[in-house]
Amino acid sequence: MISFSQVTKRYPGAGGGYEALKSATLDIQPGEMVFITGHSGAGKSTLLKLMAAIERPTSGTVLVNHQNVSTLRASALPFVRRNFGLMFQDHKLLYDRSVYQNVVLPLNIIGYNAAEAGKRVRAALDKVGLLAKEKAMPVTLSGGEQQRLAIARAIVHRPSILLADEPTANLDAAYALELGELLRSFNQVGVTVVIATHDEQLQSRLQPRCIALAQGRVTQ
């Protein structure tokens, strides 16, 4: 489903830039649940962005559903990205839009009609327990609720792959586990789930396959 071979990502910058990922090779099968672990700055977020075709590799090949992201035309990338549901490390919620409007964004991008979109948005909000807050603005939500809003937006278009970057950061342990269960429930219905985290409690609870990163290299 996702396959990296010898992938290097160098961010441009002073002194020849910074190599955030160094010849990483890995494979993720359909339906798997995978954790990406490693210290801060190890390259976890970079790895997720490469998977979702938000960044392009400096060298090496990234395959998503057998499509080579490195060589794809820029105009084709949006369609690769639609395979993914994304939870960003910093949420990236739209704070000037209501909960509903945040969640409906991926559906508008794909071009759903209003009735069908409404159904799906409510189903997603129901799943994360935010149905009652449909009209609220994101700033009025608690940290955990914002996290769940981000999940709702990530899954509303029923992607085949869910990428979550530090989904449990800033959540108390009990809440983090609850959220872990939610992510597992998606995996159980066949969604491939990739989570970047250093939450060890979550790891011991879900017992996923782990890909460890250190200084931009895959160590395990």
Binding site: A52, I54, S75, P78, F79, R81, R82, F84, L86, F88, K92, L94, R97, L105, P106, I109, I110, R153
Partner: peptide
């Protein structure tokens, strides 16, 4: 800008 960036990251085309 924030909205445009998010939209692009989750699969919006330039024409959209």
């Amino acid at each position: 800008r924030a909205e445009i960036e998010v939209a692009k990251m989750i699969g919006a085309t330039n024409p959209f």
